[in-house]
Write a protein that binds this DNA or RNA. Structure first.
Length: 572
DNA sequence: TATGTCCCGGGATAACTATA
DNA sequence: TATAGTTATCCCGGGACATA
């Protein structure tokens, strides 16, 4: 006998709109809890405040990187749905118009009801099928009916804009399958629909082969295993929600960025460091300098010092520091310089060594920086998913004296494949006699290699440029350390960390909306969007916005190479 | 002679550093 | 998300030395 679709104790969807209480938790909220209870708590406070039209308790801010990832996810979601032409989009059908206010809004109880109805039909795949159990609501990306003899089972498919399966994919599937099964759905399997690495677009708009189904037995077992945690997780989340006070005992840590960036990082770090942040603390308040090293995997070296009772990096004797790295210096002596810089509060610089390194370059040098865009679903024929496609570069020419001899730049925001024009211009702009300097050159070299592979007739000059490229970063790393770099928020040797130490008059924070690579990608998408494109529903991108995005892009990329100019100057 | 301990170097690997 | 490069760490074998 076929198992009934809905359990007796679950509320009958017939009167869903009336009797069902709105669930308190969704899959993503549960994920927030898994990542950090404090995040869940803040998110719920935020929602409650928004509902009442009040100011949020904490300001949630998503970085450009995360925003871009969300965009990618939406695109992949749409492409996935196109794989099932018969599919019914529950989400789309669940928007109703409020008779009083005339506003359109989504009715999740209605979505649950629709899901129930279509599942009884047993023939068509469902998108965003909505299930509720207890106070938890989930939406499954795709549900596919599969007939075994007389019975119909369902395969639950989770679509991810990722090329490899991740742990959190398993927990996602576990949560959704658990809720669906608790509400009586017969699942025969779960699956992930992932992006096939290396997919190349041949015909514009044809994404056949972009996505691949993963439903091996190992996945089934992992999801089953993860489901066992569900009751515990739900109980924990409920306890967190019942708290009246923010659970501050959850202090910032690795969980703030892994597996996802938390939008409340700003809120939590502000609260914990209080008024004495690193920026404002001067000699007046001798706060202990936390023990941290460069490239110290998992903080192992730092931990040995902490275990030995050290609390302030400035108080650790140099010999003790040296002993950490087998009694000598670490590979390039970076951490000896780091410790010395922190101890003395002064810059450590091996000027002679830096000069010797710079001496080996072919002057004048040209500082090169690319901005690239990548699409998980490639838009231009001949490009692959995830490929970094350059749309902009900046090139500063600098004499050995330090003097700037010229600046060239390129920016294509036509929305067409920018590679050809960029490659041709680059070949014209690069002087074959000069060293080309990049910051972390592997990236620029890979981009140039790609271009050389793409355009056979430009291969020779492009590969010549490729061979001209050298890296400025290791020269700095081996000969320079500024005390501020030891406590930098970002990477120790990121150009955005190093620049303000070497040339205080140049600041990324003075730039407009584009202050890092992720923001550059978003600005590009804005500037190069097709005519009539909308930023938000109902908000067409204006020519002024496009112009501003272009301006910000030029300023940002230009500052990256100008930074390199200044860095070379201060090494001399 | 057999066995155990320590250290060192080399190779593989995982994790981290950068970039967008 | 991805890639390329770097580096800490693990593991292993070999050599030196001590001990049974």
């Amino acid at each position: 006998m076929a198992q009934q679709l809905w359990r007796a104790d679950s509320q009958h969807p017939q009167d869903a709109g009336r009797r069902m209480t709105t669930p308190h938790l969704s899959k993503s909220l549960l994920n927030n809890y898994r990542q950090c209870p404090r995040r869940l708590w803040l998110e719920m406070q935020d929602r409650a405040a928004r509902k009442k039209g009040l100011a949020p308790v904490a300001q949630a801010v998503y970085s450009a990187d995360t925003t871009k990832r969300f965009l990618d996810g939406h695109v992949i979601g749409r492409i996935a749905q196109a794989c099932w032409s018969e599919g019914v989009d529950i989400e789309k059908a669940s928007w109703i118009t409020d008779e009083d206010t005339g506003q359109r809004q989504r009715d999740l109880n209605y979505a649950t009801h629709l899901t129930y109805q279509w599942m009884q039909d047993q023939r068509r795949p469902l998108f965003e099928a909505t299930f509720q159990h207890q106070n938890l609501l989930v939406m499954a990306d795709v549900m596919v009916p599969r007939r075994h003899g007389h019975r119909v089972y369902w395969q639950m498919i989770e679509v991810k804009s990722s090329t490899t399966p991740k742990d959190y994919h398993i927990t996602d599937l576990a949560t959704q399958a658990w809720v669906a099964e608790q509400s009586g759905v017969d699942l025969d399997s779960v699956a992930l629909l992932l992006v096939n690495k290396g997919f190349e677009l041949h015909t514009a708009g044809d994404y056949t082969g972009l996505l691949g189904l993963h439903d091996d037995p190992d996945l089934q077992a992992q999801v089953r295993q993860a489901q066992q945690q569900m009751p515990t997780t739900l109980r924990g989340a409920a306890q967190t929600l019942a708290l009246r006070q923010e659970p501050r005992k959850h202090q910032p840590g690795d969980q703030c960025t892994s597996p996802f960036e938390c939008p409340y990082i700003g809120h939590c770090t502000e609260k914990t460091t209080g008024q004495t942040t690193g920026k404002t603390a001067k000699q007046t308040t001798p706060q202990p300098v936390p023990i941290r090293f460069y490239n110290d995997r998992g903080g192992a070296k730092a931990q040995t010092l902490i275990d030995a009772g050290h609390t302030d990096l400035r108080q650790v004797p140099p010999a003790t520091i040296a002993r950490l790295w087998n009694g000598s210096t670490d590979t390039h002596g970076v951490n000896q310089r780091l410790a010395q810089a922190v101890r003395t509060g002064r810059v450590v610089m091996d000027r002679a060594g830096a000069q010797a390194a710079l001496q080996t370059l072919s002057w004048p040098v040209q500082h090169l920086d690319f901005e690239t865009i990548s699409f998980i679903a490639p838009v231009w024929p001949g490009t692959q998913s995830g490929q970094h496609i350059p749309f902009q570069y900046s090139l500063h020419r600098q004499a050995q004296s330090g003097q700037v001899l010229g600046h060239a730049e390129f920016l294509d925001t036509t929305g067409q494949d920018p590679r050809r024009a960029l490659a041709e211009q680059l070949v014209k702009d690069i002087d074959p006699r000069c060293t080309v300097l990049a910051w972390n050159d592997s990236f620029e070299r890979a981009v140039i290699r790609d271009l050389a592979e793409q355009f056979a007739e430009l291969r020779k000059p492009l590969m010549r440029i490729h061979d001209q490229v050298q890296d400025l970063l290791p020269i700095v790393r081996r000969h320079y350390f500024h005390p501020n770099m030891a406590q930098a928020e970002g990477s120790t040797f990121s150009i955005k960390t190093v620049l303000p130490c070497m040339a205080a008059h140049l600041q990324y924070s003075q730039l407009g909306t584009v202050q890092n690579g992720g923001e550059a990608q978003l600005a590009y998408l804005l500037a190069a969007a097709p005519p009539g494109a909308e930023k938000e529903p109902g908000q067409t991108i204006t020519p002024a916005e496009r112009q501003q995005a272009r301006k910000d892009l030029l300023a940002y990329c230009g500052l990256d190479t100008e930074a390199m100019v200044e860095i070379v100057k201060s090494l001399k």
